Amino acid sequence: TEEYTYTDKEKADRAAKEWANRGYTVTVTQDGPTYRVRVG
């Protein structure tokens, strides 16, 4: 499991979509002003 942190919702959504397109399980959680994209 890897985790990426973004401050921009659009970038987080785009990253999540790209990982999902590659067949990974993706979870996006909002943590205050940041968005965490957990992959795998």
Rank of each mutant, 00 (worst) to 15 (best):
T27H: 09
V39K: 03
R14G: 07
Y24F: 13
T1S: 11
D13K: 09
R36T: 14
D8I: 06
D13H: 12
T1Y: 15
V28H: 01
K17Y: 11
Y35H: 04
D13C: 15
T25W: 12
Y4N: 03
A12E: 00
Q30G: 06
K11T: 14
A20W: 11
E10A: 12
W19V: 03
T5Y: 13
G32L: 02
E3Q: 06
R38I: 14
Y24G: 02
R14P: 01
Q30K: 13
N21D: 15
Y6C: 03
T27M: 09
N21W: 06
D31H: 08
V39L: 06
D13I: 14
E2K: 15
G23R: 02
G32E: 02
E18F: 15
V39I: 11
R22Q: 14
T34V: 15
W19N: 03
W19H: 05
G32Q: 01
D13T: 10
A12Q: 01
D31Y: 08
P33Y: 07
A15N: 04
T5N: 07
Q30A: 09
A16D: 01
P33R: 05
Y4H: 05
T25M: 11
E3V: 11
V37Q: 00
R36D: 01
G23Q: 02
T27C: 14
D31W: 07
K11E: 15
Q30I: 10
E18N: 07
V39R: 04
T25Q: 12
R38H: 11
V26N: 01
G23I: 01
G32F: 03
T34A: 09
Q30F: 07
A16N: 02
Y24D: 01
R22D: 10
E10H: 10
R14D: 10
G40V: 15
N21I: 09
V28Y: 04
V39N: 01
K11L: 13
K11V: 12
A15W: 06
Y24Q: 03
T34Y: 15
E3Y: 11
T29H: 09
G23P: 00
G32A: 02
P33L: 09
T29Y: 14
P33S: 09
K17A: 13
K17D: 13
R14K: 13
A15S: 06
A15T: 05
R22T: 05
E3F: 08
E18P: 00
A20L: 14
V28G: 00
A20I: 14
T7M: 11
A12D: 00
V28F: 04
T34P: 13
V26R: 00
Y4F: 13
P33G: 11
N21E: 15
V37Y: 00
T25H: 14
Q30Y: 07
T27N: 07
R36Y: 09
G40P: 04
Y6P: 00
R14L: 12
V39T: 03
T1L: 12
R36W: 05
T29F: 13
V26H: 00
D13Q: 11
A16Y: 05
Y35A: 02
E18Y: 15
T25G: 05
T1D: 10
G40Q: 14
A20K: 12
R36M: 08
A16E: 05
D31R: 05
K17W: 12
Q30M: 11
V37M: 04
T5K: 06
Q30D: 05
T1I: 14
R14N: 12
A15R: 04
T7G: 08
A15I: 07
V28T: 05
A20V: 12
V26A: 06
G32H: 03
R22N: 12
A20S: 09
Y6W: 03
V37F: 04
T27G: 04
T29K: 06
Y35P: 00
R36P: 00
N21C: 15
A12N: 00
E18V: 07
T1N: 09
T34D: 07
E10V: 10
R38Q: 11
R22W: 08
K17Q: 13
K11A: 15
T34Q: 09
Y4M: 06
A15Y: 05
D13N: 10
G23F: 02
A12H: 00
A20M: 14
G32K: 01
P33W: 06
T27S: 10
A16G: 05
Y4G: 03
Y4W: 10
Y4V: 04
T7E: 10
Y4L: 06
D8L: 05
V28I: 13
R38A: 08
V26W: 01
A15Q: 05
R14E: 13
G23K: 02
Y24L: 06
D13M: 15
V39D: 00
T5F: 14
E10G: 10
D31S: 07
E3G: 06
V39G: 01
G23A: 02
W19G: 02
W19L: 10
K17R: 12
V39E: 00
G40R: 13
K9F: 11
V28W: 03
V37L: 09
D31E: 12
Y24N: 04
Y35K: 01
T1R: 09
T27Y: 08
V28Q: 05
T29S: 10
Y35G: 00
R14T: 11
T34G: 06
N21S: 14
A15G: 03
V28S: 03
T29D: 07
P33M: 08
Y35L: 04
W19P: 01
D13P: 00
E18M: 11
K9D: 03
R22P: 02
Y6L: 01
T5D: 06
E10P: 04
R36A: 05
T7H: 11
R22Y: 07
R22K: 15
Y4T: 04
A12P: 00
E3L: 08
R22I: 08
K9H: 08
D31T: 07
A12Y: 01
R14V: 09
N21P: 01
Y35S: 02
K11W: 08
D13R: 08
T7S: 10
K9M: 06
Y35T: 04
V37S: 00
T27A: 07
W19M: 06
A16H: 03
G32Y: 03
A15D: 07
K17P: 02
Q30P: 05
G40Y: 14
V26L: 01
E2M: 15
P33T: 09
R22F: 07
Y4I: 05
A20N: 07
T5C: 14
T1F: 15
R38K: 11
Q30L: 09
G32M: 01
A20D: 05
T25D: 11
D8E: 08
E2Y: 14
K9V: 06
T1E: 12
D13G: 06
V26G: 00
V28M: 07
A12K: 01
G40N: 13
D13F: 14
A12I: 01
V26C: 05
R38V: 14
Y6K: 00
Y6M: 02
V39S: 01
Y4A: 04
T5W: 13
T7N: 11
E18K: 07
V39A: 03
R14Q: 14
T27I: 11
T1A: 11
V28K: 02
V28A: 02
R38G: 05
T7V: 09
T34N: 13
T29L: 12
A12L: 03
T25F: 12
A16F: 04
W19K: 03
R36S: 07
N21F: 06
Y6T: 05
R38M: 11
T34R: 09
E2R: 15
Y6A: 01
E18H: 12
R14W: 10
A20G: 08
E2G: 12
Y35M: 03
T1G: 13
N21M: 11
E18Q: 08
Y4E: 05
T29E: 11
P33Q: 09
T34S: 10
E2I: 15
K9S: 07
G23V: 00
E18W: 15
A15H: 06
K11D: 14
R38W: 07
E18R: 09
V28P: 00
Y6I: 02
V28C: 09
R36E: 03
Y24K: 04
Y35V: 05
Y24P: 00
G40M: 14
E3W: 11
R36L: 13
E18L: 09
P33E: 12
E3A: 05
K17H: 11
D31Q: 08
W19Q: 03
Q30H: 08
Y6V: 02
T25I: 13
P33A: 09
T27D: 06
A20H: 09
E10M: 09
R22E: 13
V26Y: 01
G40S: 15
